[in-house]
Amino acid sequence: MNAFRLAGDMTHLLSVVVLLLKIHTIKSCAGISLKTQELYALVFAARYLDLFIHFISLYNTVMKLVFLASSFSIVWYMRRHKIVRRTYDKDHDTFRHHFLVLPCLALALLINERFTFREVMWAFSIYLEAVAILPQLVLLQRTRNIDNLTGQYVFFLGAYRVLYILNWIYRYFTEPHFVHWISWVAGIVQTLLYADFFYYYIMSWKNNVKLELPA
């Protein structure tokens, strides 16, 4: 494992920790999109189908379990926890996320590395992850007061994508057979979606003002 990959995984983990901190400690999910969280839970469930079939490393298994458990518990908190769910900004979280799922599934059936159940589900999870942040970005745009933890959560999530691209570039040159066109193209699309957010996040940090996205 190279440094970019490890740093990418760690920022991904950090984003989850920041979100859980907000939900668990502050008992608030204000500014967090339930739609995005549900999509992530679906992404991990579809991608980690091989969890108990293919053993890669202890690190890999543990991280997969962490992402599965955290994504489903976040959805549970936002839907069921009696205090947390009251802070959910339902009126602004109106992105029709179900309409993302079907096109991703169709694309996975058409473009995959092999036409088997697991490979189609893997491609589906990659496509869905690329667009899963959209409801969250739309909600941020509609939120007048973006709190620090929410901004940091999205920032770490975006940083993870950037680091994964660097990891692929590194692996492409160091591992002769490392080719994954599907995850590369989807990963670049996913990262580009954060470009706008990054711009405003860095500007707010530089100018020391509160983060606000233009509508």
Binding site: R5, N60, M63, F67, V179, H180
Partner: peptide, 10 residues
């Protein structure tokens, strides 16, 4: 034959 790498990423 195996052109794609194993899926060892998260």
């Amino acid at each position: 034959e195996c052109l794609t790498a194993p899926k060892d990423e998260l």
